[in-house]
């Protein structure tokens, strides 16, 4: 039995026994190679689940949307390693209870889908270390190095051009599992803290606010980057922030679910060089 069939039948069992109220996975999309999030509530619906190399979205986003887990019931979700990393962060930030999530883990390597052992987040303890020591995708690393070599004024011009495309549709925020704020700072409008205008200043404000809020919290799943309809390379910002946090605090977000969120906690030996 292939992994897709195996997960389908396991999902059907979980639903028919009432173990979970919902399975969040992937279904066929509007074209041959598109996959879309699929919500199965009955064993019959789980027959429509698809699992192949095109299932790249990070579905943890739905775990923190619309109060899905507030009834205390369990949900099963299809997750790649970056999704598991996101889940670790969400648990560490007390947004999701570990026992409420059943994981159908899978990895995609060389267009092949392989299952990941384990169904509960505690089964994936070793994965965190593997991710921490893994090298980032060469495409991201090379592009990041190219930007690094530009110098600050070159980089400023680069980002000015990129941000000039921003239409403030907030697809990056909505696709991101870490953007779970009930009311985002840009939606706080009494008074309006961050400008809603898509001029240079407004676009910088938004993208920088988001970058700062994701520092030490990003799982590098690339959801924001893929969601951006105007192709702003947001992965590069998050990569850089992640690197910064790693260097300053030796911290890798989402390594485990019992981490202390790096910018929401302190150690007595934290460097205090920034204090004048």
């Amino acid at each position: 039995m292939g992994i897709q069939e195996q997960y389908r039948s396991e999902a059907a069992e979980l639903l028919s026994s009432g173990e979970v109220k919902l399975v969040i996975g992937f279904g066929a999309g509007s074209t041959a190679d598109r996959r879309r999030p699929l919500f199965a509530r009955t064993p019959e619906e789980s027959e429509k689940l698809v699992l192949d190399q095109n299932c790249i979205a990070n579905l943890t986003t739905y775990l923190v949307a619309g109060g899905l887990l507030t009834d205390g019931k369990k949900v099963a979700v299809f997750l790649k390693p970056d999704g598991i990393r996101s889940l670790n962060i969400l648990i560490a930030e007390s947004q999701v209870k570990a026992e409420q999530v059943v994981i159908f883990g899978f990895a995609i390597e060389n267009n092949e889908v392989t299952p990941l052992e384990g169904r509960s987040i505690s089964d994936f303890a070793k994965l965190g270390e593997k991710l921490r020591t893994a090298t980032p995708p060469p495409s991201v690393q090379e592009e990041a190095e190219r930007l690094e070599a530009m110098g600050s004024s070159g980089r400023f011009e680069y980002w000015k051009e990129q941000f000039s495309k921003c239409i403030k549709c907030y697809a990056c925020r909505q696709a991101c599992p870490m953007c779970y704020c009930r009311r985002c700072i840009v939606d706080v409008n009494q008074p309006q803290w961050v400008s809603t205008s898509s001029h240079t200043l407004g676009n910088f404000e938004w993208n920088l606010v988001r970058a700062f809020h994701l520092a030490g919290r990003c799982a590098a799943c690339g959801a924001c980057d893929r969601a951006c309809p105007v192709n702003i390379p947001l992965r590069l910002i998050n990569y850089r922030m992640g690197k910064e946090v790693k260097e300053a605090f030796d911290y890798f977000a989402g390594e485990s679910s019992d981490q202390n969120p790096v910018l929401a906690s302190f150690r007595q030996d934290d460097p205090e060089t920034f204090i004048l």
Partner: peptide, 20 residues
């Protein structure tokens, strides 16, 4: 159910015209 509530469909639409 799967709509994440971003504005990309409206902002890329040639006829959507709402403003603030």
């Amino acid at each position: 159910m799967r709509c994440i509530g971003c504005g990309s469909c409206t902002f890329l639409c040639p006829t959507c015209h709402c403003f603030d």
